[in-house]
Design a protein around this nucleic acid. Structure first.
Lengths: 106, 106
DNA sequence: TTCTTGTTTGGTAGTATGACCAATCACGCA
DNA sequence: TGCGTGATTGGTCATACTACCAAACAAGAA
């Protein structure tokens, strides 16, 4: 088996596999945002947000653009979010089994 | 923002974000397999494979079925693999930029 | 140049991951 | 009941993640 391709894919998934980073991606789906704007959404320290963004950038999930003192980030490949229509199926089948409410799906 | 849904999604992505587990998922896309069969594909210790499977099972990505002494695993939600048509776009745009070969995409 | 705003980087601490070996459990058969 | 095969669990170690604070950096205004 070609291990390299799986390592590459894993790197991308790993970059996504964090609640704050998923929030960031979701926020960016409606257009580019500055670090400060994202920080307001997420609520953690701005240095933490900046590091999350650098993780997403290293994985080529977001692209940055400087404008004066601000840096704006946007999704490089918006289809990345389509994935969750399937993830939601996992959540759904789990929620049904455990009797949790459908509001989990969002 | 509803942090709970992002934590749930992150848990699923985290469960997927490992090369061996992606190999397992890919292998299971062609039908259910025993732990020993998967171990042969992956190459690591069988205890390691078993632990990977338990991670995937906890995330409701795979379902197990016992038959005699053997346990067979299969994908719970096969669409989970569709995701990679998009992940490949990330790989592709990255590969173009860095001049890496298209064989990365597999 | 100096100040201010916006962002990134360095350092640290606590927690989680992933690999292996050894031991245990589950099942079917003698 | 005792054996053998197949799978899981416990223990350990090295490595990686994620949060925060503090310090440094980048750009524009005074």
């Amino acid at each position: 088996m070609d291990r390299e391709i799986y390592e590459y894919r894993a790197r991308i998934l790993k970059a996504m596999a964090n609640p704050s980073r998923l929030m960031i991606m979701d926020t960016l789906s409606s257009g580019e945002k500055s670090v400060a704007a994202l920080q307001e959404m997420i609520g953690s320290d701005i240095s933490t947000v900046s590091k999350h963004l650098s993780v997403l950038k290293s994985a080529h999930i977001v692209i940055d653009r400087r404008s004066g003192a601000q840096v704006f980030y946007r999704l490089a490949v918006p289809c990345i979010l389509d994935f969750f229509s399937c993830v939601n199926m996992v959540i759904q089948s789990d929620a049904e089994k455990s009797g949790r409410v459908a509001s989990m799906i969002g």
